[in-house]
Write a protein that binds this DNA or RNA. Structure first.
Lengths: 337, 337
DNA sequence: TTGAAAGCGGTACCAC
DNA sequence: GTGGTACCGCTTTCAA
C-alpha cells in the first residue's frame, strides 16, 4: 500500500467551494479578495495541502534548483565554496544540488549536457580541465552556467577565477623576505592546470627575488598529505634548503611532518608556506602561512553571479578575478621593517 | 530573448513521422519494433531532443532526487557521510540535494515538512536534536526518510545510529591502559545529544577503570579547535592531569595546541584522544588517536537503506547500529602486553 | 504494433 | 473578481 496520495489543489477547491483558479490565486497572492484568501487558506490547512513542486515547475518552467559541480566535495577549497553558495541560494529559495564528478572529464561534460533535462535552473561548474568538448557543451547551455576557474577567452560564459600563478609568486617572495634563499617547491601533478600555473608562479617568484631555478629543489606529489610528506623527505635527503612552498595546504602539512621527523624546526630552520588557506592551515602546528586563493569569495561571487543571471536574462558574459593574498601565520618568519 | 525552448517529444514525433506515444515507447525501450526505435532515435538525435526531467517526474511521480540534511557540511563527520552517499545514489541514477540546516531546529523541521512538496523521492536526515515537533513531522513523512542518529524507540522510521557513549568509554579505557590516571574530558555543549552521551560514556569509562569522577577534570567547549584549546588551557591551569579526551577531533586538536603551548609533550606527559576519526586526526602532529563512530559506514548504510526503501515499499522500519572503534595513533601510549 | 486521449498537478489567460 | 479551460511535456491505458 503506497502512502495515501497527498491532496491536490482540487481537494482544496472542493472544500473551499471555489474553483482551482481561485485557489491558485489566493495561495499565490494574486487576488484582492481577502475573504477568499482566508477561506482558501483555511481549506488548504484543513486538508493538509502542499503544492507539488514538480507540477509548479512544469508550468512555471522553473525548478527552484541550482547545481554545483566539482571534483570532490572532500577538497577543502570546494567545501569552502559550497558553504558560501548554499546559504545564498537558500536565502532566495533555491535548493542546491551537488554533483561530484570525481575528476572524471566525461562525467563533467555529462553534467553540462544533462542540463538540457532542465532539472535545475542553473549550474556552477568547477572544471578540473577544459577540453574542446567542454567548450562545445558550454557553447549553448540549456540553463545559465557560471564557471569557476580558468577558461579560454573565446568561451562566452560567466566566469570567476583567481590567479594562482601570482599566488605562488607571493609565497616565494614572502619566504625570501623572511630570509630564505634556498626555496624548495613541492608541486602537484605537472599535467594539471593548477600544477602548471603554480610552477610558473614559483619561477616568477624566484626571478623577482633574484634567485635561480634549481631543479633539485623541485618535487611533485599528489595534492595529499602523504605524498607531500614523501616528496619533502626526498628533498631533504638530497638538497640543502631553508624553505618549502607546498602547492596546497595538504602538501605543506605533509612537508611539516617530514621536517619534524628530520628534526628541523619550523620556521627557524625551515619556513613553510601552503596554498588555499584552508581550515587545516589554521589548525596545524605551527599554524601554517598560506596563500589564499579566495575560495570562499569565489564561491560567493559565483553564486551572486548566477542568481543575477537567473533573474535578468540576456546580458554579456561576466568575468571576475579574485586576487590571491597571503595569510601569514607562524610557519614563516615575521618580516620586520 | 529567452533561449530557444528545447525541442519536445512532439518535435521528435513529427520528424520521425510517428505519434508521441511511439516516441516515448521507443526511447524507453517499451517496444519491439527495432526499426521504429532506430527511426525515433535518429529523429531525436537530429532535433537534439532531451526529455524534460520535470515532465517525466510529473507523470511517473518520481523525481530521481534524494536529499541529505545535516547541520553543516563543513563538519567532517557529515562530509564523510556525503562522500559515501553521493556516489551510491549517483550509481543508480539519483541526484543528491544538500540541505545545511545550520543547527536550526526550525529549519530541520521545515525540511521534513517540505517533503510534502515532493521535490525528492527520499531524505536522509541527521538531526542535532529530536524535539516533539520532529517526531510529529516524522510520523507520516511524504516520502521515505532515514534518520542518522539517536531516535526515541517509538518513532517508526528507518534509523542508523552509533553508540557514542560506548565510544567515549573506549577512549577512557584506552587512556587508562596506557597508564593514565587523571583523565580529563573536554566535552561539547552539555545540552546536546552528543554531549550528554559522551559525558555518560566518560563516566562509564572511569567506573570500569576504577577511577573516580573529578569535576575539576571536566570542561565544556564548542566542537571547535579554538574552544578546545581554551578549555584545555583552563584544565591545565587548575588541575594535574595525564590525559585528555576531547569530545571530537577538533576539540582534541585544540587540546594538543594548548599542551604544546604549555610545554607538555604528547603522549609522554599527556596522552590525547579525539573522537570521530576524521582526516584531521591523520594529519595532525602527532597523529591523533581517535574513536571512530563510523561516519562513513553510517552514511553508506543510510544510503543503502533508503535506496532499498525506494524500490520496495511497505516494510517495517529498520534499525542498524554501527559499533564504535578505536583508531590508535601516536598521541597515546602504546599498550604492550 | 500503433495512435488517440486521459491524466499527472498546477498556472494563467480569457470570457463572463 | 471568478470560473472554465488550455497548456506545460511526458507516460500509459485503451482501442483499433
Amino acid at each position: 500500500m503506497s502512502g495515501p496520495s497527498r491532496p491536490t489543489i482540487y481537494a482544496v477547491a472542493k472544500v473551499a467551494g471555489v474553483s482551482i483558479s481561485s485557489v491558485s490565486r489566493a495561495l499565490n497572492g494574486n487576488t484582492s479578495n481577502l475573504d477568499m484568501v482566508a477561506r482558501v487558506k483555511a481549506a488548504a490547512e484543513q486538508v493538509g495541502y502542499v503544492p507539488s513542486a514538480v507540477a509548479q515547475s512544469l508550468t512555471t518552467q522553473q525548478t527552484g534548483q541550482v547545481a554545483f559541480a566539482m571534483e570532490d566535495i572532500g577538497n577543502a577549497a570546494y567545501l569552502a565554496m559550497v558553504r558560501e553558495i548554499q546559504p545564498r541560494l537558500r536565502e532566495v529559495g533555491y535548493r542546491l544540488l551537488l554533483h561530484a564528478t570525481g575528476a572524471d572529464v566525461q562525467d563533467e561534460i555529462e553534467v553540462v549536457e544533462s542540463l538540457a533535462q532542465k532539472y535545475v535552473d542553473g549550474l556552477i561548474l568547477c572544471p578540473i580541465r577544459v577540453t574542446s568538448r567542454h567548450i562545445a557543451a558550454l557553447r549553448d547551455p540549456a540553463v545559465p552556467v557560471v564557471v569557476i576557474g580558468q577558461l579560454p577567452d573565446e568561451v562566452a560564459v560567466d566566469n570567476v577565477r583567481t590567479d594562482s600563478r601570482l599566488g605562488a609568486r607571493l609565497a616565494v617572495e614572502h619566504l625570501h623576505a623572511g630570509g630564505a634563499r634556498r626555496i624548495a617547491f613541492v608541486n602537484g601533478p605537472a599535467d594539471t592546470i593548477p600544477g602548471q600555473a603554480r610552477y610558473a608562479g614559483y619561477q616568477d617568484g624566484l626571478r623577482t627575488c633574484g634567485l635561480g631555478l634549481d631543479d633539485t629543489l623541485v618535487e611533485f606529489a599528489d595534492f595529499q598529505v602523504g605524498a607531500g610528506r614523501d616528496a619533502a623527505a626526498r628533498l631533504l635527503a638530497r638538497s640543502d634548503l631553508d624553505a618549502i612552498f607546498g602547492a596546497n595546504d595538504l602538501i605543506a602539512l605533509g612537508a611539516m611532518h617530514a621536517l619534524r621527523s628530520a628534526g628541523r624546526s619550523i620556521p627557524d630552520d625551515v619556513q613553510v608556506v601552503g596554498m588555499d588557506d584552508t581550515t587545516l592551515a589554521e589548525t596545524s602546528f605551527p599554524p601554517l602561512t598560506s596563500v589564499s586563493l579566495g575560495s570562499r569569495e569565489r564561491g560567493r561571487i559565483a553564486a551572486d553571479m548566477l542568481l543575477g543571471r537567473l533573474r535578468a536574462e540576456a546580458n554579456v558574459p561576466q568575468r571576475v578575478t579574485v586576487a590571491p593574498s597571503l595569510t601569514v601565520r607562524e610557519s614563516t618568519r615575521e618580516v620586520t621593517g
